[in-house]
Amino acid sequence: MILIGESIHIISKGVSAAVKERNKKPIQDLAVAQTEAGAHYLDLNMGPARKNPEETAEWLVKTVQEVTDLPLSIDTLNPVAMEAGLKACTKARPLLNSASGRTDSKEEMLPLAKKYNTDVVISVLTDRGCPPDVDSRVESIMDTVAYANELGIPNEDIWVDPILLPVSADQKQVLEALEFAKILSDILPGIKSTIGLSNLSNGTPEELRGILNRTYMTMLGRYGFYSAIADVLDQELVRLNRGDLPQIVDVIHRAMDEEDLDISSLSQQEREYVKTVSTLLGRTLYSHSWLED
């Protein structure tokens, strides 16, 4: 799976202060750390970028490109910042992150993907919010992708985002997103995909977030999912994705197939992955203590 490093994010206090003060060092440190950790792309999340959107986006892209050759994912809902960010990408073909089925996004974001010949993330969001189940996600994405195709953006350039909600807030939605991932390549041949993986564990105690993210990534990967915006500083996540931990992948797949998998012969680590699969598939009710359940 293609891993898009998530750490340069405006919600992070360090990043927010650095952007405000135009202090390159903290941003470049994060860029280098993620590049060395094995990221394939770097996400630059600048939020709504209300103040000086053009100048901010340009500064951020240039700052990061000074220290890495990785392609960048320009992540903002502000079309002005988006355009400036895409324009500033000189090293590799960027990813526009993101457009959606919302009217304003179709009108202002999607044309930028065509204009700058970028890859583009299209989420299932619509004017009515996040579609509640698989069918409505399909309906939304078919509509938006058809619109993008008409603009001249081929399926191969589109990375569909099913929208992942925190398991602690709505366990059922986690399963809906997975089911959607399963059928995506059948309904839209040639399409790519991505997901905000860490949102899964938002609200979960910090020390337990990793295993949720890693397990879900592996489950998605089984269905040919293309990429994830993720915490690449989690070494186990990168190793798992690289194929260094085949026995964990195997136990996750078995847990997906067998509801009553016998865990008595498994190691503690393997058991934890099995319990996590069980929770993410909605077989047991989520609680923060799911590993002790």
Binding site: S168, Q171, L285, Y286, S287, H288, S289, E292, D293
Partner: peptide, 9 residues
């Protein structure tokens, strides 16, 4: 309900 289960555990 999630916190409820948590406390019971």
């Amino acid at each position: 309900i999630n916190l409820m289960k948590e406390l019971n555990i």
